Computed example of a mutant assay.
Amino acid sequence: MKKKRKQNQNQRSNKKQDELTLKDSLNSEIFKQLNDKKKELEKAEVERIEKEKQKKLEEKRIREKNKSFEELLNESNMNWEKYK
């Protein structure tokens, strides 16, 4: 049983050594370009999300600004019947 475990572990370690990663097979310059492109895309995604969030906040502000008195009164949690 121990022999089989040792053999399996040896086979696994040999496979790991035999496998080449993308970084190993690519030219360092190409790898650097790919990493730069990845960072650029991540930055663009963050900017897009931030712009989307700002747009939603602006739309919410405009909706609040354009509400009628009746809508504001209905949304109020006060009991206005007390004040009649």
Rank of each mutant, 00 (worst) to 15 (best):
M1R: 05
M1S: 12
M1N: 07
M1I: 06
K2F: 12
K2A: 09
K2N: 10
K3D: 12
K3N: 10
K4A: 09
R5C: 03
K6H: 11
K6L: 15
Q7F: 11
Q7M: 11
Q7S: 08
Q7V: 08
N8E: 12
N8H: 04
N10D: 14
Q11I: 04
Q11G: 01
Q11M: 08
R12L: 08
S13P: 00
K16W: 01
Q17F: 03
Q17A: 10
Q17C: 09
E19H: 14
T21K: 08
T21A: 09
L22M: 13
L22I: 13
L22E: 14
K23N: 02
S25G: 01
L26T: 04
L26N: 08
S28G: 06
S28V: 04
S28F: 05
E29L: 05
E29Q: 11
I30Y: 10
I30R: 11
I30A: 15
K32Q: 09
K32M: 03
K32F: 05
K32T: 05
Q33C: 08
Q33N: 15
L34T: 04
N35G: 02
N35V: 07
N35A: 01
D36I: 08
D36F: 06
K37W: 09
K37P: 04
K38F: 10
E40D: 08
L41V: 08
E42H: 04
E42N: 15
K43W: 04
K43P: 02
K43M: 04
K43S: 12
A44G: 02
E45T: 06
V46A: 15
E47D: 15
E47W: 01
E47P: 13
R48G: 03
R48Y: 14
R48S: 07
I49F: 08
I49D: 13
E50R: 12
E50M: 01
K51E: 13
K51A: 09
Q54I: 00
Q54P: 00
Q54K: 10
K55S: 05
K56Q: 10
K56G: 04
L57E: 15
L57N: 14
E58R: 11
E59V: 00
K60S: 13
K60V: 06
K60N: 12
R61P: 00
R63I: 07
R63S: 14
R63N: 13
R63A: 15
E64T: 00
E64H: 08
E64R: 09
E64V: 03
K65W: 02
K67V: 11
K67C: 11
K67D: 01
S68V: 00
F69V: 02
E71G: 05
E71F: 09
E71P: 07
E71K: 03
E71L: 08
E71D: 14
L72C: 13
L73M: 15
N74F: 07
N74L: 06
N74P: 05
E75C: 02
E75M: 09
E75L: 15
S76W: 05
S76V: 02
M78F: 14
M78Q: 15
N79Q: 14
W80G: 00
W80I: 15
E81F: 03
E81M: 07
K82G: 09
Y83D: 03
Y83F: 15
Y83R: 11
Y83W: 12
Y83E: 14
K84Y: 03
K84Q: 04
K84M: 09
K84S: 09
